[in-house]
Nucleic acid binder design. Structure first.
Lengths: 336, 336
DNA sequence: CTGAAAGCGCTTACAG
DNA sequence: CTGAAAGCGCTTACAG
């Protein structure tokens, strides 16, 4: 049997297609009785609405998300929060993983734009070129919001944690604990988070009369191995810090495993995953609120879709430091 | 300026809309010269194809994925593999997280069907009702493939690891290592993986003259806390096993943390994440190949889309045991 | 409160 | 190799 169309419903109810369409939109211009009759027929005849065919409607109710990947719990949580918030707003989500490849990111965006998404949420790949991104988005003028990472010089709505502040919290904490030589294993070289956090860390250390030794600032991959490799690099070079600041909790776990043989060295990082508190020893970490970031991104996008003329806005979430054993002197540890 | 339409390109090139449409499809029925001319105009005029408007085309080139969540690395890897494979096949991905709520899963599927996806990949939520799922899918006859989890009595293409075999591998290994009292902290009660693995574990233990004591088979949540809570439950009940089989590596990490005070108890689990080998002690785990699962799922779906009349197929991946210190007697440990 | 008509931006036979 | 015409399944003014 052929699929049931809107015109079949209209015929069955003895009304026009326009009326059925208005029922679909729950318009106030159709009487209650007619609505009931039409809905009953839709249900009975197994009608499935074809959203694609609403060519004249201004919206598709699809939003696209292009993000790096979900191997990292921060990005996994962020993706889920975005999906949940968009669902609640009535959108269906198109998703693509750039895997931090700017060219793939461009291809994914172009594909989504061909599907006429109402808006785009973008976690920019490392090395995203401002001009290229502008070109990709300009042809369609699709509303968009940047999430979790900036693109230098690119003017757009943005949501993310305040990375400078996050690193300041860590730097001040380590200085107050008395650590002197702090290493920064802060993630990939192209990452805006790395640059922002390095700046914040340096600032906080200098405010406490310390320096961030350039020899102790090392680019790392974002995973467990990145932390371990950077530690091995430091130790091999005879550069032994007394505290290490990592890119993320996962990186910190790798670093801590590699540091096990090197005596007691403090470790702090960013994300504050549940695993940070449960680690042995418990890991000092700065909460970066991916769930809240995702929710705010969805709200900013909705506002942007509703009014494309809005001035662009940046939402910075305030990070929160959770000091734990991994950076506390023995006398400051809680004795649980 | 108004968006450029296909008819604008046609006018600019002095050809019909049909010809431009054929160029878009790279049809062999258009001369090389015309193609060049049309493509140049598209590029110059900033044309953006509107896929929605291809109402008469049989395909949308959109595929939907409804999965549980990506908090667990297995599902994160699976989602990424699916996205990558579908992209390579030319599809754009609609994604929804059911969060293991069958009602939400139904809503997500209905939404995707309204968008006329060419096919659906489904990681069924716990407690998915066969009849309800059939009803949701039947109205549209959308091709679909089940991934990683079965639905009892639901006939469809399926890809996943062979859970029975996976648990047999673990059971045989533990028995051969001499463990006598094996506990099974095998995940949520509604999970098909749990049921299949419990069956495989029992079978292997019995083949080695041991039993799986029902008092030692405990439902757990799929996360870290699930492992810790189940261990505490066992210890509080005075049921001390000499080996514990966990639902996943993450669950195992929680269990190991909770077991730390209880002396040496062997732990094994499923997934074989990179973190398993790096854990202290290294964790015995069965690899379950999420990346391969995702790839195979995309291929099965493509075959199903190409020929809906195909008989349904089940692809079972053979798991692989990686024995490590967490289950090896001291004398069997490698001395690295 | 409802309908007839035009339209959304493409694709698909069909004809030449 | 190309075009004129009809069509995909909806929505939107407009008119009454």
């Amino acid at each position: 049997m052929a699929r049931v169309r809107l015109k079949d419903i209209a015929a069955a109810c003895g009304v026009s297609r326009a009326t059925v369409s208005l029922v679909l939109q729950d318009s106030g211009r159709v009487s209650h009785g007619t609505k009931e009759r039409v809905r009953e027929a839709m249900h009975r005849m197994g009608y499935v609405y074809d959203r694609r065919a609403a060519l004249r409607a201004s919206r598709t109710m699809i939003v696209g998300l292009v993000t790096t990947h979900v191997r990292n719990p921060y990005f996994a949580e962020l993706s889920m929060a975005i999906e949940g918030a968009l669902y609640d707003q009535g959108y269906t989500l198109l998703l693509g993983y750039s895997r931090d490849d700017a060219a793939q990111q461009a291809r994914l965006l172009e594909g989504m734009i061909e599907h006429r998404v109402d808006g785009l949420l973008i976690v920019p790949a490392y090395q995203t070129d401002r001009a290229a991104l502008e070109r990709t988005l300009a042809a369609s003028a699709t509303p968009h919001v940047l999430v979790a990472r900036h693109v230098e010089g690119f003017d757009a709505d943005y949501v993310g944690v305040d990375n400078v502040r996050a690193a300041e919290l860590v730097g001040a904490h380590l200085a107050e604990q008395g650590y002197q030589r702090v290493a920064f294993l802060g993630g990939p070289a192209g990452s805006t988070a790395r640059a922002e956090r390095e700046y914040g860390l340096r600032k906080a250390l200098e405010a406490h009369g310390r320096e961030l030794d350039p020899a102790l600032s090392i680019a790392t991959s974002a995973d467990r191995d990145g932390g371990a490799a950077a530690v091995q690099h430091l130790l091999a070079a005879g550069q032994v810090p007394d505290a290490v600041v990592c890119y993320s909790d996962v990186t910190a776990f790798g670093a801590m495993a590699a540091l096990r043989s090197a005596g007691t060295i403090a470790v702090a990082s960013f994300d504050d995953l549940p695993a940070a508190a449960q680690h042995q020893p418990p890991l000092t970490s700065v909460a970066t609120f991916p769930a809240q970031t995702g929710l705010d991104a969805a709200l900013l996008l909705q506002a942007r879709i509703d009014d494309p003329a809005l001035p662009s806005r940046s939402v910075l979430l305030t990070p929160r430091l959770h000091a734990r054993e991994s950076t506390l002197g023995p006398n400051e540890r809680s004795t649980t």
